[in-house]
Nucleic acid binder design. Structure first.
Lengths: 122, 122, 122, 122
DNA sequence: GTGGTCTAGACCACC
DNA sequence: GTGGTCTAGACCACA
């Protein structure tokens, strides 16, 4: 999977987002060891410092933890991951409805539009 | 309606977005005169220059035009407004599905989740 | 002939230019009476004040003169008109060669390009 | 080369024009890094903000792009540069013929006048 | 050190 | 009073 960046938003923030999504969606299961900073950095084609910063932020969020000398691991606190996922999901839903609201659509209308859009893409 | 800003994104970008929504959703109808830069600036509680920058961007997008000394007006090209609305709508839908996709949800599943969410909020 | 304006440049300046061209190219011959300010203003669809300003500028340039109560007339000084024409012509030629120069073209090359362009348009 | 400005037209517009010419005529080759905003600003003896505005405009035109923290670069899309050059060239030719037309000269006559002018300057 | 943003304040041309 | 431009100076995020 190619990593590509927005260019307007800070790269490290996009890294955080990307890895966060990978964790809550099970690409990196609970307790799994993450690739080393250098590996991740080369994968994403960014400066190791930038990747470092992203991982540090994920650690303060409690989604990963560091074991000295052994590397970084996804937290084993399944509940924490579930909450993070819930938080993300809620914010996606809300921001969707809010944006559509700015276009003058009620939640019901937004739902209908999305339904048509999904059906139309098939 | 109070204007409030994200803090992460540039203010002028949020101004652009805000006014753009107002135009495509008919708050400012085609051909209507916009308030003066200074008025808008005080309304939004930002520096006039910042508002100016936002309006300049909307002008390059073709949503508004300037009449020397008379003020700024919403374009009378209703088709352009319609297209802008369409573009916005598409990008909202896509970004929603894409974000949900990152959580491992197919469009169908995303649709179901949204449905439950909307029903639950009633 | 429809008058249309650039929108970026001051209208009065464009009026000056337009009428100036009309005088040096003989649309308004030496000594001819010009239409009244109001007529010209309605012709050009501009505010009479703006047209007034343009005519005042032409007067200071010596291309037209005012006879109290009778109206405005093109100067009868044919030599002055010839000189104005010469001045205009020179500046057009120079600015053409200069612009092409910025594209890296020598005068000879510019000449060749123009030749091809003119032939191509036939 | 000293930068000098017209005084009638906005400085930032003249900056845009100047740099644009430099790009399409190869002074800044495709992919080349431009000097920093501050450098360019001191070179041109203008305020950095003014230069910034000019560069922003060039970016929306697609002639240059920005790499976060690394600087600005000429686009590598040589086709885009070629088109820009073509556009510039066309507009120079057209505006020349149009101006001469206002003097009552047909394109053929304009061509002859230019020929004499170029020969006379040798 | 890079670009990006914002504020404050001033001045101008135009109508 | 309208928009437009410019300067000065400051601050921030990023790498």
């Amino acid at each position: 999977m190619a990593w590509q960046f927005d260019g307007n938003r800070p790269i490290y923030a996009q890294l955080v987002e990307h890895i966060q999504y990978d964790i809550v969606s099970g690409v990196y299961p609970p307790g799994e060891k993450l690739p080393s900073v250098r590996e991740l950095a080369t994968l994403a084609a960014v400066n190791p410092n930038t990747m470092q910063k992203a991982l540090a932020e994920l650690e303060t969020d409690g989604l990963i933890f560091t074991q000295r000398t052994a590397g970084r691991f996804v937290t084993q606190d399944v509940e924490a991951i579930r909450q993070a996922r819930e938080r993300l999901s809620q914010s996606i839903l809300q921001s969707f409805l809010q944006s559509m609201g700015h276009l003058g659509c009620t939640p019901q209308q937004s739902l209908e539009i999305l339904t048509k859009y999904v059906e139309g893409s098939n």
